[in-house]
């Protein structure tokens, strides 16, 4: 947190290299969030720029009640959502899982029947079919190693809702893998 304070002070004083350090520290996280939301590299890059410029303008109002990473990711998240809303892309489409939790537990373990790389490609393809919000939350939780309360701070969603998204997203991925046995050698 002390490092954050020093960095913010340097940026507000317009010190050369300070803003660059800030961007370097958080650009990958922001890009991944935006890429998972939009599914488009070019859009994610443009939105990433917008998010950082917006963060720079809002920096005087940063109160250090969260880490700079959480705060910056929150800005990227809101920039991404606004972009999807503008393009009328549905943010959220819950998969109908009914009582699939039990089915999933009883289902045949197909992992051993699939060729390793094909399986991974299949998961990636299935991931791209998820709703943007689910995909992004899965990335935050599994790749960024963000805790549920951190994700809640970034997205403004209650922890229960985030869990529900994660659960349904993972279940949807699993069901897609089970439904498409064509990858079986």
């Amino acid at each position: 947190m002390e490092d954050d304070r020093i960095l913010v002070k340097d940026i507000l004083e317009g010190r050369r290299g300070a803003m660059e350090r800030f961007v370097r520290a958080h650009q990958e996280t922001c890009w991944r969030v935006l890429y998972r939301l939009t599914g488009d590299r070019e859009d994610a890059r443009d939105l990433c720029q917008e998010a950082f410029l917006r963060a720079h303008r809002a920096l005087p109002s940063f109160r250090f009640d969260a880490s700079l990473k959480t705060w910056t990711t929150r800005i990227a998240w809101s920039v991404g959502l606004r972009h999807l809303e503008k393009r009328r892309i549905p943010l959220d489409a819950f998969t109908d899982v009914d009582d699939a939790a039990d089915q999933a537990d009883d289902a045949e373990d197909i992992a051993s029947a699939l060729v390793r790389e094909e399986r991974r490609a299949q998961v990636r393809a299935a991931l791209s079919t998820l709703a943007p919000v689910q995909r992004t939350l899965l990335g935050m939780y599994h790749f960024e190693d963000m805790t549920l309360p951190d994700i809640s701070r970034v997205t403004g969603m209650p922890v229960g809702t985030i869990k529900s998204h994660l659960f349904r997203g993972r279940l949807a991925l699993r069901q897609q893998l089970i439904r498409h046995p064509e990858c079986t050698p």
């Binding site: 990958e28 998972r36 070019e42 991931l127 699993r174 089970i178």
Partner: peptide, 23 residues
């Protein structure tokens, strides 16, 4: 095993698209 595979893939970083001079 399928869930573990999903966890593995979710932990893969998407290839970054930001150039070296982005910051």
């Amino acid at each position: 095993g399928t869930y573990r595979l999903i966890a593995d893939v979710l932990a893969e970083p998407p290839a970054s698209y930001l150039g070296a001079d982005f910051a």
